[in-house]
Amino acid sequence: MTEQVEMDHPGEGRLAHADSDHPPVVSHAKVGVVLANLGTPDATDYWSMRRYLSEFLSDKRVVDYSSWLWQPLLQGIILSKRPFSSGEAYRSIWNTEKNESPLLTTTRAQTDKMRERLKALYGDDVEVDFCMRYGNPSTRSVLNRLKERGCEKIVFFPLYPQYGGPTTATANDQAFRVLMEMKWQPYIRTVPAYFEHPAYLEALTNSIKEAYEGLETRPTKLVASYHGVPKRYLMEGDPYHCQCQKTTRLMREKLGFSKEEVDTAFQSQFGPEKWVGPQTVDHVAELAKQGHKHIAILSPAFSSDCVETLEEIQEEIYESFIEAGGETFTYIPCLNDRDDHIEALLQVVNNELAGWL
């Protein structure tokens, strides 16, 4: 039997037979859905970039060197210089109209569409929001806000198709850290990798077909460029590299392309370690030298266009290809807030909501 609740404010009240000093309780339990992305600096100035990079590069999931070795190097040499170059990269892609990064703009748009779709299915029983692992809105602020709104159960959805320790795992870590601070924790489900989900592959191949239809010259190579990781991560059991390779294969098979038409490469390498390869920036130059003058490139591991795609691919990697003799370089945007992408994410979320609504 449900305890009668006397409403003090919309959505919360006091138990009818409780003492007068009893804290407010929610009148109707809801389910929260949180879309979690990597993060974004608040601005492109030196100190904003330094705060963001310090949080990001201090994460043991991202750089797992001993703190006594890494932190003096990071806080000294690296963060004295890198905020300038990273700020310049962000300024080249910044959404000046909204004064925010494109990643923030797109993640908000994805959340708005997801909220609309879930409201049509479940009414007011579901609250939808988004958070960033680094920067704002923080995981802590969003999970606390959903709990205050009466979400006793939460589906936490890191927006990474392929599971990786430096991406999916650290997003989940942060969510669990927030729960550790709560007296009354909501139940939580974390969403698994969805790189082989049929709806995700459908959206991915749709984006490629649409891009190819608008080209005068068909590319002789399609390059799937994923964010790289040190090879050591693969050897220590991280499935990311293998899931990237499988994504490319499933995508190629669905498109009906031959093995010779599609390559897998990895970008954004830094530091002295050996990383999984080939490196995209070098690979596209080698393709041009081999006679592949017309290529297309996409980033299946990114759910939203960001500095790695808008600046690194479309500037640095593009220049590497052209300087090596390439002629046509076609960048196929991330799935962003395409309707078929939102449908794919919705199917994944609905699977995790099973039994809760």
Rank of each mutant, 00 (worst) to 15 (best):
Pro300Thr: 08
Lys113Ser: 07
Ser27Leu: 08
Asp124Arg: 10
Leu287Trp: 10
Glu181Thr: 14
Val276Phe: 03
Ser92Gly: 06
Thr40Arg: 02
Pro239Ala: 07
Tyr233Cys: 05
Pro41Asp: 03
Thr105Phe: 02
Pro230Trp: 07
Phe321Arg: 07
Ala16Phe: 11
Gln347Cys: 05
Ser67Trp: 12
Ala29His: 11
Met114Arg: 01
Tyr318Met: 06
Gln110Ser: 02
Asp19Thr: 08
Pro230Phe: 07
Lys289Thr: 13
Leu357Asp: 00
Asp19Met: 11
Gly39Pro: 01
Ile332Tyr: 06
His283Cys: 14
Gly11Ser: 12
Leu69Lys: 15
His22Ile: 02
Arg82Thr: 02
Val25Glu: 02
Gly271Lys: 13
Met7Gly: 00
Ala169Asn: 09
Tyr240Phe: 14
Thr167Asn: 04
Glu261Val: 10
Ala224Tyr: 15
His227Lys: 03
Lys221Ala: 13
Glu216Leu: 10
Gly164Trp: 02
Arg249Cys: 10
Gln110Arg: 02
Ser225Arg: 09
Leu335Tyr: 07
Thr96Val: 13
Pro230Met: 10
Arg133Phe: 03
Glu343Pro: 00
Ser86Val: 03
Val178Asp: 04
Thr217Pro: 00
Gly87Ile: 03
Val307Arg: 01
Tyr160Asn: 02
Arg252Ala: 10
Ile317Lys: 03
Thr111Ser: 05
Arg140Gly: 04
Phe257Glu: 14
Tyr122Cys: 08
Leu159Cys: 08
Ala296Pro: 06
Leu255Ala: 12
Ala203Gly: 09
Phe84Gln: 04
Arg51Pro: 01
Gly76Val: 11
Lys60Asp: 12
Lys221Arg: 15
Gly123His: 11
Ala301Glu: 00
Met182Ala: 12
Asp124Tyr: 07
Thr309Asn: 09
Lys259Ile: 11
Leu287Ile: 12
Lys231Leu: 11
Leu69Gln: 14
His22Tyr: 10
Leu15Phe: 12
Lys153Met: 08
Tyr122Val: 11
Ala171His: 00
Tyr212Ile: 05
Pro219Asp: 12
Ala354Asp: 11
Asn350Lys: 15
Val262Ser: 06
Val126Lys: 08
Ser80Met: 04
